[in-house]
């Protein structure tokens, strides 16, 4: 069943709206089995949530994103977790990753303008206890996001219409 679960995730990761009835046909199992497996995947938090990939710039104009390198002092007993939690609680923060290498946390922040993001970093992020330094990198253009090419489609069908 593990393989089938993997396939369900593959299908839903591509189109979360695929109906159970269609998945049943695609996978050669019953609709009830699909429902049960999806339920398990949700319960195990393998499927965390169903979301929509949006080109935000086209709906709310000047959305900006920044990747912020954060260096912190880890705390006794709780390591990086406590400070990460302080950071990821903010709604401006879209993602937080613990990193290896030259700094500790990557924080992905979204805002309506560069100014807004810059103020967030200055007022909220860098003032947290244990934050040693921050470096803010604004995203200028996205070429590929979530595995999707943003501005060019190489899958346009250039094959011969009929071939042996």
């Amino acid at each position: 069943m593990l393989d089938v679960k993997k396939e369900i995730v593959e299908i839903l990761a591509k189109d979360a709206r695929t109906p159970h009835s269609e998945m049943a046909v695609l996978l050669g199992i019953s609709q009830e089995q699909v429902a049960e497996l999806v339920r398990q995947l949700e319960e195990e938090k393998i499927i965390v949530c169903y979301t929509t990939v949006v080109d935000w710039n086209r709906i709310s104009g000047d959305q900006v994103q920044a990747l912020i390198e954060v260096r912190v002092t880890p705390q006794r007993d709780r390591g990086f977790d406590a400070i990460a939690q302080r950071i990821y609680g903010f709604s401006e923060v879209k993602s937080v990753y613990l990193m290896s290498g030259g700094y500790d946390l990557t924080v992905l922040v979204e805002g309506n303008s560069m100014k807004e993001v810059a103020f967030f970093v200055a007022e909220k992020l860098s003032t947290i206890d244990g934050v040693l330094s921050t470096a803010t990198h604004f995203v200028l253009r996205k070429y590929k996001d979530n595995g999707v090419f943003m501005d060019f489609d190489e899958n346009g069908d250039s094959r011969l219409a009929v071939s042996p």
């Binding site: 190489e154 899958n155 094959r159 011969l160 219409a161 009929v162 071939s163 042996p164």
Partner: peptide
């Protein structure tokens, strides 16, 4: 197959299930 190909390639809006190669790049 060739004969068929010539007709299809001149037709607007045709959908083909006729190819013998992967759609993956």
């Amino acid at each position: 197959i060739r004969k068929f190909f010539d007709v299809v390639s001149d037709m607007e809006g045709a959908i083909s299930l006729g190819v013998g190669e992967p759609d993956f790049v």
